[in-house]
Amino acid sequence: MKILLINIFLFNISIFIIAQTLDEQKHYADSLFGIENYYDAITEYKRLLYFDKLNNYKYDANLNIAEAYKVGAKYSDAIKHFTIVRNNCTDESGIINAELKIVRINILRRTIPEALRSLNNLQSNYAGVIETSVINYWRGWAYIMADNWDLASIEFAKIEYDHPLKIISDKVELEKYSITFAKMSSLIIPGAGQFYTGNYISGILSLGWNVLWGYLTINAFITERAVEGILIGGLLWARFYRGNFQNAEKFAIDENKKISNKAYKYLSKEYFGEKP
């Protein structure tokens, strides 16, 4: 009986040593994570998970692996590990937290439909548990990253009328050029769309070419040189006229991209609220 008790004691000691070893490994991985050595931190968390047969560290290790992958812009890997975290959660807040992390990665990697779908599911499945403002906030960010600033503004306004992100979204939307207006104005007055988007030289050139070919076309018809008129009008004037409004549309799109990128840069550096 004594021998049996001694061995039970020894067995417990060995289990304790293993637990201590794994705990030390966890601390080691955490320290690497703490000093932002994410590559090695992932390795050590994975080592911990591999030897943790009782899954004691499954939640914490996978959470930090996912965060480390996210920092390294390995978004698919990050989602994979956040999904493990979500699937191993027993409480609702943990599930919601993991799901929101996945949403934020989808926003970051611009898989916006996926992010919006997850937010809708969260809203319908956890109504009353998750605050609506949280859903609105991340939905707003999803629209920002989708370059849809007016919808973003609507979402942030639902949280607070003077929400800082609503103000930024409104400002960006106001700064942006209307692509339809740029195109239509160039259809009416060649070069007008280019002027509208601030590309004055291009606007002058476009106007000049259209005036020249337009004059030659009309002049040909007036002087009863119909064939010549058709040729100049159909081949040259039409080519420059089409090029003019296509160019105006392209300028508006390019300028809008510049405005959006400037806003993204501002949000990344100057906005101190929660970001994806």
């Binding site: 061995n7 060995s14 289990i15 070893t21």
Partner: peptide
């Protein structure tokens, strides 16, 4: 029976400690 239990436990003990004392 005691000896069997003894060797089994020593075996398990060694297995765990050898495998996991140094990852």
């Amino acid at each position: 029976t005691y000896l069997f239990i003894l060797f089994t436990l020593i075996g398990i003990n060694n297995l765990f400690s050898q495998e996991l004392d140094n990852l």
